[in-house]
Simulated assay, not measured.
Amino acid sequence: MALTATAPKTSNDTPTRLAIRRFMKSSSGKIGLVMAVFLILLALLAPVFKPYNPATDRDYINRLKPPSAERVFGTDNLGRDVFTRVIHGSRISLQVGLVAVALSLTIGTLLGLVAGYFRGGIEILIGWITDILLAFPSTLLAIAIVAVVGPSLTNAMVAVSITQIPVYIRLARSVVLSARELDYVQAATALGAPNRRILLRHLLPNALPPIIVQATLSIGTATLETAALGFLGLGAQPPAPEWGAMLSDAFRGGYALNSPWTMIFPGLFIMLTVLAFNLLGDGLRDALDPRALK
Rank of each mutant, 00 (worst) to 15 (best):
G192C: 10
N77L: 13
A276K: 02
A19I: 01
G235F: 02
A240D: 12
D183H: 11
D131M: 12
E225T: 15
V99H: 02
P194K: 09
A215E: 03
L45R: 04
P210Y: 11
P51E: 07
M1Y: 14
A69N: 10
L200P: 01
G283K: 09
G79R: 00
T223M: 15
I169S: 11
G120F: 13
K9I: 13
L182R: 15
I162K: 04
V176L: 03
I92R: 04
T221S: 15
F38D: 10
P238H: 07
G233N: 08
L39G: 01
V86L: 10
Y52I: 06
L182Q: 14
Y255M: 13
N155V: 07
K25A: 14
S26G: 08
A36N: 01
A236Q: 06
R285C: 09
M263F: 12
N206L: 03
V185L: 08
L200K: 05
L140Y: 10
V160W: 01
S26D: 10
E70K: 12
P194I: 02
G233C: 06
Y52K: 00
T226A: 15
Q95M: 13
A36L: 09
K25N: 13
P238S: 11
A159G: 09
E225V: 15
G281V: 04
M24G: 11
L141T: 05
L200H: 02
A215I: 05
